[in-house]
C-alpha cells in the first residue's frame, strides 16, 4: 500500500485532503459524522463517478483525448430510453436501452475522432451541443415520467449504508477498470498509446481501434449513469447531465490523470470524486452558500495542478 501511495503522489494528496476535510468537519460540527451522511455522499457520487470513469479512460488514452459530450450523453440517453419505453419498449429493457444508446453515442464520438480525424475537443464540443440540445428540444424541456416502479428500489436503496447504485454498479466498474488497466495487455496498450502514440503505433498497437473503443466505453459509462438517474429520480430530466462535462473533467484532473494522457489511474479519479462530493456535502451541512463550492473547487483544481506541475519539474 505504501509503495502504491509513493507511486502515485496524487492519491496520497487526495487521501490527505479528504482526512483533513473530515477532521475539519468533525471539529466544526460533530453531528454530521453519521452513517447517513456516508450514504448521502456515496449516493450523490454515483453518477459523477460513472461519468468520470469514462472521461478518465478517454483522457488516459491520449491523442489530446477529452470527452465534452458526457453530460449530453447522460441527458439524451435517459430521455431517449424513456421515450422508447413510452412508445412500447418492454420496461425490463430500460437498462439495456440506456447502455445501448450511451454506447452508440460514444462510438459516434469515436468515429469522428478516429475516422474523420477531428480533434477530440472540437468533435465532442460539437456533439455536446447536438446531444444536450436534442435532449431538451425533443422533449420541449418536459420531464419524461413513468420509470417502472420496479427500478426505484434499486435506485434509492442501500445495503449496509452503501447505496445500491454505487455498490453494485459504480464500484465494480472502477474495480474492473483498475484491473484491466494494470493487469491486461489491452490496458497497458491504453496507457502506452497515451504516453507515446508514435511508438505505440510502431510496436503494432491498433491505436485507432483502441481509441474508438475507449470513446464507446465513455458513452457506455454515461449510459449507465443515465440509468442510475432514472432509477433514482423516477423520471428522465432533459438537463440531467448539465455541467457533468466540467465536473467530470475536474474530478479526472484532480485525480491525477494527466491531460496529455498516459499518466494516472482510476483509483485517483474515484478518490477525487469522493473528495469533491464530500466537500459539497460538508459545505452544505455548514450552511455555506453553494456558490462557494464552485469557487473552492476551481481554486482546488488550480492549486493541485500547479503544485503537481512544480514538483514534477523539480524531480
Amino acid at each position: 500500500m505504501t509503495a502504491r501511495l509513493r507511486q502515485s503522489p496524487t492519491l496520497a494528496i487526495l487521501a490527505g485532503l479528504w482526512v483533513l476535510l473530515v477532521a475539519g468537519i468533525a471539529l466544526l460540527s460533530p453531528g454530521i459524522l453519521t452513517a447517513s451522511t456516508l450514504t448521502t455522499i456515496l449516493q450523490f457520487s454515483s453518477i459523477l463517478a460513472l461519468v468520470s470513469l469514462g472521461q478518465a479512460l478517454v483522457i488516459l488514452a491520449g491523442g489530446a483525448g477529452i470527452d465534452l459530450s458526457v453530460g449530453g450523453i447522460v441527458s439524451l440517453a435517459s430521455v431517449l430510453a424513456m421515450m422508447a419505453v413510452s412508445a412500447g419498449l418492454p420496461a425490463t429493457l430500460l437498462p439495456l436501452a440506456c447502455l445501448g444508446i450511451g454506447l452508440a453515442l460514444g462510438l459516434g464520438n469515436g468515429l469522428l475522432v478516429t475516422r474523420l480525424r477531428i480533434l477530440p475537443l472540437i468533435a465532442t464540443l460539437a456533439t455536446f451541443y447536438v446531444f444536450s440540445g436534442s435532449a431538451v428540444a425533443l422533449t420541449g424541456g418536459a420531464a419524461q415520467s413513468g420509470v417502472p416502479a420496479a427500478f426505484t428500489p434499486w435506485g434509492r436503496g442501500a445495503l449496509a449504508g452503501i447505496p445500491l447504485p454505487f455498490l453494485t454498479l459504480a464500484l465494480p466498474l472502477f474495480l474492473v477498470a483498475g484491473v484491466v488497466i494494470s493487469a491486461t495487455s489491452w490496458g497497458r496498450w491504453l496507457v502506452a498509446m497515451g504516453d507515446n502514440e508514435r511508438s505505440a503505433r510502431l510496436v503494432g498497437i491498433p491505436v485507432d481501434r483502441a481509441r474508438l473503443i475507449v470513446y464507446g466505453l465513455s458513452g457506455l459509462a454515461s449510459g449507465a449513469a443515465a440509468f442510475v438517474s432514472l432509477a433514482w429520480l423516477g423520471s428522465a430530466r432533459p438537463n440531467i447531465g448539465q455541467n457533468l462535462e466540467l465536473t467530470s473533467l475536474t474530478a479526472v484532473l484532480l485525480g491525477g490523470v494527466s491531460i496529455f494522457g498516459g499518466r494516472g489511474g482510476v483509483a485517483g479519479v474515484l478518490a477525487a470524486v469522493l473528495l469533491l462530493v464530500t466537500l459539497q456535502t460538508a459545505l452544505l451541512r455548514l450552511n455555506i452558500n453553494t456558490v462557494w463550492q464552485v469557487g473552492i473547487v476551481g481554486a482546488l483544481l488550480v492549486a493541485v495542478l500547479v503544485a503537481d506541475a512544480l514538483t514534477t519539474r523539480r524531480r
Binding site: 456558490v291 476551481g298 495542478l305
Partner: peptide, 27 residues
C-alpha cells in the same frame, strides 16, 4: 500568469478560474 508560471495546460487553468470567477461574480 497561472498558465505561464504555473506550467499547467490552459484548459485546466482556465477551468479552475471559471469556478473562481463565477464565485466572484456572485459575491
Amino acid at each position: 500568469a497561472v498558465v505561464a508560471f504555473g506550467k499547467i495546460p490552459a484548459i485546466v487553468a482556465t477551468l479552475g478560474l471559471l469556478g473562481v470567477y463565477r464565485a466572484g461574480i456572485f459575491l
